[in-house]
Amino acid sequence: MSEISAPTTSTLKIPQAPDKLQHPMTDFLRTERLPHIWCSTCGIGTVITAFIAGLQKSGLDRNKVSVVSGIGCSGRAAGYLRLDSFHSTHGRAVPFATGLALGNPELKVVVISGDGDIAAIGGNHFIHAARRNMNLTIICINNFNYAMTGGQAGPTTPEEANASTAPFGAYEFPFNLPYLAESSGAVYVARWTALHIRRTTKSIAEALLKPGFSFIEVVSPCPTLYARRNRLGSGLDLMRFYHNSAKIQHGADTRDIDIDYQKEIVVGKFIDKEKPDFYTNRDQFLSKKLGDKYIPYRGPNGH
């Protein structure tokens, strides 16, 4: 931790949290790495809190849960979680996680990454993992821009929004991520904002327990770049905006839930359907075809 000496003004008093009490999530955090790198009023930390709460709620064995991140602000998520955590390359969190999940079917593998990582450079991997109904939970933190590199336009930047590579406003048509996930084959699709912490937590717990490919988009404030460039105030102002503009509509047709610039954001759980997950499907198919000759893959502990 960097040493910053406190100003020596006499009026400064620094109250301390009582020693014996610990944040209930301490056990899930690499506290030695805190404070994290995310800006003040950024929502990523809130999503991480919801993830830990969702994981606790799911009742899964935390030692059998792995987190994979890509690159970018959200890509740093893995580095703060005291789980088996992997910080892979830009866009490759999903295929890395696919390898991890296939390498040991006992694991629950979660990808926590950003909109650029998952939907732009990793877009092809994302749709194919969904197509396979791969045993993955994807939490995509959508802040509408590439924040780590300075606020460039991305695959979800709404039309009209300003970005450093769209200085006159973005004019490309953005992805509607829940629609993309659903049409690619995801069995669980939800969208929330960083303000909907309890509902995000519930969705994460549900997704973790759902076999196959589950996808949760969490719209999150980026104060330093997206909000600043678009004169939207701080992250708190964006949270207020979500408060006023998010409309909960469970089961909404994902075709109708595009996010337009500073307009209504439809949130909710859109898809929760049954379809054989990759492992189950592969096992059943191959044992049908090969009979006794089939030796199922049981992971590194299996043989």
């Binding site: 009490l21 944040h23 999530m25 955090l29 994290h36 929502g43 809130t46 809190t49 912490i197 309890r198």
Partner: peptide, 12 residues
Amino acid sequence: LCEMICPEFAIF
């Protein structure tokens, strides 16, 4: 709620 919404794990 404060504990859940805090992005810094600073309040519980």
